[in-house]
Design a protein around this nucleic acid. Structure first.
Length: 588
RNA sequence: GCCCCCGUAGCUCAGCUGGAUAGAGCAGCGGAUUUCUAAUCCGCCGGUCGCAGGUUCGAAUCCUGCCGGGGGUACCA
């Protein structure tokens, strides 16, 4: 039930015959900001009147009169300079809601034109611990995959691992020089992680600026070069390390509940790079310059190198090979890259090059996002200036959430705790709330802006937070449990809905806006569209809950009706959180 | 130098394909309510939407310039 589209269609029909160029005017329909202006407003009259040289209120009146109200619209009102205020009929809303209740998908239709989306996200460098830098890509990418999939598209989630980079040089040097063989035999993953951290520590400070001076950094670089040159020993070790490196990532992905369809890293494309360069040169897209091979974009724009003077390839080469492979393999309609905004120039160039290479029939999108900042507003760091590891961040999320959960349970005498919370249940709740808080805080942010990472904000029980939504869900579950009704019956033979109070009506409308919200979210690849909707739903529900007694409703019919509203609200919340990759708990 | 992004309430952020008095949470102040989970709700306070022009019936939203902050910019990825 895409309400907005429904209203737009009606307005479009009414406009037909009034102008030749209906579409832009039909698009001027939007949800009202204030309920006193109805549910939707059509704003076409003002600009149309201008174009026709007529009085805007007259034009508005004319559109209003031509509207086919059917059984679902109240008589429209013309207001102000020429706004047309539209209000949906209560009986119709009630009817739609019963249909929604019977639907697994809660009224959301499958995409009319299903596409194939390859989503490139997460992309950590293996052989070193994941850190906050990977958080946003992982969370946002996962959510977009879930959303696209739910809307009926084919989704290929691909983790483009950094598995061929300089970190392996450090690991190789470490393996050869400081490995604890017993520890490696016992727990290879752990020992390799230790070795990496140790080598990194030894070269610390020389990492960014003055690498050349450090002997270990230099030795590591040579190990990398040998690996890339095909040195049998290093290639053998690389192959031995890789499974351990992948295994090391798993606990994080498991906790985040993130899965990939493929994990084709840089190494996978390595054998294809020479051919890519040859082809681009042959087609005149790339040419030799200053000893390297480069693709140029314009007079004063810097080029991107696809082969360095020393013969090595760059990430542009790999990315081009990746595009080719993805196009050949999955024939996608869109390639989405969920990557930090700072790579905007790279992607803009990459897409330009890909199009010239012949990949025109695919949407190439850089789904960019801002940085995670510390409380000081600067890039987030640990106390000693290092990168915050994702593992410890998630541990902290659990610990912080557990404090909040325990405090809440203890101070809330009426918590639905006829059965006491066991320690393990509290752990489970804390994990769901903690991880959910991190995800929700991230996803509720406008993707493109930076945000400041704060536990107090993320775990707040008021406001637009994951915990609040999870709580709203749990509260609903509690009511339905107490009511002792059959949820099954609600979903197969739902009771009649009564929308007598404005709070009930508002809630009904908000539930039916679900599809509209998802459409808006997917249109610009913004998961925050879902959280904004959720937050509105939660506020509307809160108004309902405050003013309409459910269990003690005035009549059995009203009780049933309100219980169904509760069940629907809970289902929408659960589904939305699910699309964000956030778990719900039955009670908390 | 050139390019990109950002600048909205004390703080953190929405809103940005132009629309009716600019919204939320936190903080501050004041209330409700012995609750269907108070992990609640309501009200008040608080903004020249960085500045200056322009386009428009209408601009936080579009355009230009300036100021301030961040990022990127041929051999890392």
């Amino acid at each position: 039930m895409h309400l907005l589209r429904l209203v737009q269609n009606a307005v479009r029909k009414a406009l037909a015959g009034m102008t030749d160029d209906v579409e832009p005017y039909a698009a001027m329909v939007k949800a009202t900001q204030d309920a006193k202006h109805g549910d939707y407003q059509a704003n076409a009259a003002m600009s149309l009147a201008k174009a026709l040289g007529k009085n805007p209120r007259d034009v508005a009146q004319q559109i209003a009169e031509r509207l086919d109200l059917g059984d679902w619209l109240d008589k429209p009102e013309v207001a102000g300079p020429g706004f047309i205020n539209l209000r949906l009929r209560g009986e119709w809303l009630a009817k739609q809601l019963r249909t929604t209740a019977r639907d697994e998908r809660l009224g959301v239709g499958a995409a009319e034109n299903p596409g194939v989306y390859v989503v490139d996200f997460s992309g950590p460098n293996v052989a070193k611990p994941m850190h906050v830098g990977h958080l946003r890509s992982t969370i946002i990418g996962d959510s977009l995959c879930r959303l696209l999939r739910f809307l009926g598209h084919t989704v290929v989630g691909d983790n483009h691992l950094g598995d061929w980079g300089t970190q392996f040089g450090m690991l190789l040097w470490g393996y050869k020089n400081i490995l604890d063989k017993d520890a490696f035999a016992k727990d290879a993953v752990r020992e390799l992680a230790r070795v990496y951290v140790e080598v990194r520590r030894k070269t610390q400070g020389t990492e960014e600026d003055d690498k050349a001076g450090d002997p270990i950094a230099e030795a590591s670089r040579q190990e990398t070069a040998k690996l890339h040159a095909g040195d049998p020993e290093n290639v053998r070790l690389w192959k031995e390390f890789m499974p351990h490196c992948l295994e090391e990532l798993q606990p994080i992905y498991q906790r985040l509940d993130v899965r990939f369809d493929h994990q084709l890293g840089e190494s996978f494309y390595n054998p294809m790079l020479a051919e890519v360069v040859r082809d681009l040169e042959a087609k005149g897209i790339a040419r030799k310059s200053e000893g390297a091979v480069a693709i140029f974009y314009g007079e004063d724009a810097p080029p991107s190198l696809i082969q360095k003077r020393d013969g090595g390839f760059t990430y542009t080469t790999t990315d081009l090979a990746t595009i080719k492979h993805r196009m050949d393999t999955w024939k996608p309609t869109a390639l989405l890259y969920v990557v930090d905004s700072r790579q905007a120039l790279h992607f803009s160039n990459l897409f330009d090059a890909a199009k010239r290479w012949g990949y025109n029939g695919v949407a190439l999108e850089h789904i960019k996002f801002g940085s995670v900042l510390g409380p000081d507003g600067k890039a987030i760091k640990t106390r000693d200036g290092g990168a915050v590891e994702l593992g410890s961040l998630l541990d902290e999320a659990f610990t912080e959430a557990r404090k909040v959960v325990v405090a809440a349970i203890n101070q809330s005498p009426t918590t639905d705790s006829t059965v006491a919370f066991s320690e393990s249940e509290i752990d489970q709740i804390a994990e769901a709330v903690g991880i959910g808080a991190v995800k929700y805080a991230d996803l509720s942010q406008n993707r493109t802006s930076d945000y400041i990472f704060r536990w107090s904000k993320m775990l707040a029980m008021n406001g637009n937070t994951g915990a609040y939504m999870q709580y709203a869900y749990a509260r609903n579950c509690s009511i339905l449990r107490k009511a002792g009704v059959s949820i099954e019956r609600f979903r197969t033979d739902p009771p009649a809905i009564h929308l007598d109070s404005p709070h009930e009506r508002a809630l009904a409308l908000q539930i039916l806006r679900f599809e509209e919200a998802l459409a808006a979210a997917v249109a610009d690849y913004q998961p925050s569209g879902i959280t904004t909707y959720l937050w509105d739903l939660a506020k509307t529900y809160s108004g309902f809950f405050q003013n309409c007694s459910v269990l003690k409703a005035e009549s059995p019919e009203l009780r049933e009706s309100r219980l169904l509203l509760c069940d629907l609200t809970a289902r929408v919340i659960q589904l939305c959180l699910g699309l964000l990759g956030i778990r719900t708990v039955e009670r908390m």
